[in-house]
Amino acid sequence: MQSCSSALCILILLISTVTTAVPPVKVNLHDSATLSCSERCSGLVRWSVSHKPTDVLAECDQTSCRSVKEGYQMIHDQYLKGNLSLTITEADLTKRGWYTCQCDDKELCDVNLQIEPFNTMVQIEPGESLVLDLDVSDSVKVIYNSTDAANRSSGQICTVDRDSLQCKPEYTQRVSVISALELRAVTPSDNGVYTILTVREEEVIHTYSVTVQGDHSDLDTDKGAAVPPCVIVLSVMGAAVIVGLVMKILVLRRENQLLRMEGAKNRAQMNHHSDHSPGEERLSPHDNE
């Protein structure tokens, strides 16, 4: 009987734990967040960060509610109705984590606040550096998933713990970290998705979708590259204009040549006519005698 009673107590404890569990709250950066907790409490209700139970954020009792720290608040009317929710007016990355609601030092609710991850599109030229913001001071790891058809590698490439950096051998000479992770001398083989996530909770903080644009020198050797239709049209029109100008010049030269020949012929005829005009006296050999 004692064994059954112990098992029953454990079952009741598990049911109690499940019924008071609250799903994670996910919000966008700088949005307001409400950490829900619906329990009756006629005494003092306090919210705190889970790992700092004495660091009170807001509290309520039968007379009023108080914001102990700026940016955290409770509503007294809701408290009287059994709604003990905490509102965070502006959620940022420093406010991520677990929060605990207590009634007269008895734990009622634990709620996990998560910030929706950033999604950044990056286009970069070959040879440049890719900069990945770490965003948080927590220990983070960088996961890489290639989108390059010729390079299907994926997996963890680096771990950053404040100023300490550990990377896979192929990245050691290319990576440095100050306030961000810098990957130098990128090539098209570095195309892919880079995910920053915390080591402890494995919470995604930031994802980068990276496209390294192709080397421009490839354009000179790519004989199969398609020529845009507009370029073809402009080329044909340019060639037609040039041919037209050449033909016009040839015609003008021919006309000038014909005019010169006609003028020379007219002058020759005029000279011949003047040599045989009727009014001109001609002397015969007999006149000289």
Rank of each mutant, 00 (worst) to 15 (best):
T20F: 08
V122T: 09
Q73S: 15
I205C: 00
D138R: 08
S146V: 05
V193R: 09
N119F: 13
M121R: 12
Q62T: 13
S139W: 13
N191R: 04
E262I: 06
V131I: 14
E289N: 09
S16P: 00
D31H: 13
N288K: 13
Y194Q: 01
G97H: 07
V210K: 03
L234S: 07
D218Y: 04
L80W: 04
K168A: 00
V193W: 04
L183N: 03
D163N: 05
L219W: 09
H30T: 03
T100S: 12
V45N: 07
N288F: 13
L258N: 14
C158E: 01
E203T: 13
M74Q: 14
Q2W: 05
L113H: 05
T20K: 07
S176Y: 12
N256K: 12
G244A: 10
V210R: 03
P53F: 02
K69P: 07
F118R: 09
K81V: 10
T89C: 05
L14C: 04
T20V: 10
S209H: 07
G192R: 03
E39N: 10
W47P: 03
M121S: 12
R260V: 05
C230I: 10
C167Y: 02
V22I: 05
V186R: 01
S139R: 15
D148M: 07
N112K: 10
D110Y: 03
E289T: 09
L113S: 03
I124L: 06
S64I: 04
D220K: 11
Q166I: 07
E255Q: 15
E289K: 11
S139N: 15
E203N: 06
A33L: 11
L283Y: 06
H276L: 08
S284I: 06
